[in-house]
Design a protein around this nucleic acid. Structure first.
Lengths: 197, 197
DNA sequence: CCCTTATGTCAATGCGCGTTGACTTACCCG
DNA sequence: CGGGTAAGTCAACGCGCATTGACATAAGGG
């Protein structure tokens, strides 16, 4: 719970009465909690505690748990800074990130982990299709510069998520020679998909 | 087949008392249910119903839900027939499988889906590390013929899982030109990792 | 053939969950 | 500065869950 609090960074001030701020704090806590624990394992009481708020406000402000999740989903995968990624460094950056341990503070990690959690739950999976298409695959396709199909975006997204899961299972960071070899190989795979230019 | 007959078990008339068979039926039902629904969303009542048995037997035979899960995990990822895979056809076989829709009847699908479900749950993730290492990465490494490190096995496993998740998110099978392009690209990626011979 | 025991059934218990409605308190406008 | 209302608190509800122990019954050896 302390790690979550640190990741969300919402526990500081003497709270004044401000519905908008409270709502925002709850949403922020939800984004983190859902990404880490998944939909079913996250209780509204957890989220409220993380946000320094009260459980009863969540049904009132978001219309229930599903409403909160839907909004957190949109807020999580909506605004991304894909255009900031440097194409020449991208593959190696990702490879090094994947060789380390999971860090929920990294927005990229959190976004994809949220996605992964949502994908593996039959409750939330149906909500994903359109959102992923619009806010995820389409931007990647633009970034890649594809004009025809989007299969390259699919492949890139799939591989990215795959390494995320591998890191999740692995638990700890890679060390020494295995780390080096791993990074080389992952870099090569991703560059193979991204292609030149 | 067996599962379905047991699910419809009310009709199968002369129910004999056989602890071993009951235990096996429960375990079989658990393997399927956990793979499809995940640990938290699967209730012991669901499993018992699927096995045509009674809820109370599960804590008695398996020591509780976690015990059942652990055993189902071992039974699911235990001995696989990796050696049967034809190295030259492997990449394309996988690519075509990934282009389609998820089919829980395929044992490969079920195994990996089980793995994925377990990986995304903090409750079950710690149980995975050793099991994956012993029963999954090591065989792949042998199959690949690596003598030094196992980073290639890691990469292959990661990519495989990634496409599995992508298929899960996608929901439906790919069609037409996108399907063709997707298969080509996935084949190329996997062959790049497997390498020649 | 009956009696013991393994095997299966069932009702009950306690717990955590999401949600609701009544209550209290702080803020702000007149 | 006082009252009205928005904002937050709290207790309680119904529900489904895993687990338990008491009970019923089939099976098979003496």
């Amino acid at each position: 719970m302390t790690e979550l609090a640190q990741a969300a960074g919402v526990l500081a001030p003497p709270r004044r009465r401000d519905a908008a701020a409270t709502r925002a704090a709850i949403l922020e806590a939800a984004k983190t909690a859902f990404a880490v624990t998944g939909y079913d394992r996250t209780s509204l009481r957890d989220i409220a505690a993380l946000a320094g708020s009260d459980v009863a406000l969540i049904p009132r402000y978001f219309g229930g748990k599903e409403g909160l999740f839907t909004e957190a989903l949109k807020a999580t995968i909506a605004p991304d800074r894909l255009r900031d990624w440097d194409r020449r460094r991208f593959a190696r950056d990702v490879a090094e990130m994947m060789a380390g341990a999971a860090d929920i503070a990294d927005p990229r990690t959190r976004t994809f982990q949220f996605l992964l959690q949502a994908a593996t739950s039959p409750t939330t999976a149906p909500l994903l299709g359109r959102a992923v298409q619009e806010r995820f695959l389409a931007p990647i396709r633009d970034w890649l510069g594809d004009t025809a199909g989007q299969e390259r975006a699919r492949v890139l997204a799939a591989i990215y998520i795959g390494f995320l899961v591998e890191r999740l299972i692995r638990g700890a960071a890679l060390e020494g020679a295995e780390r080096t070899a791993f990074i080389e190989r992952v870099t090569a795979v991703i560059e193979g998909v991204i292609g030149p230019e």
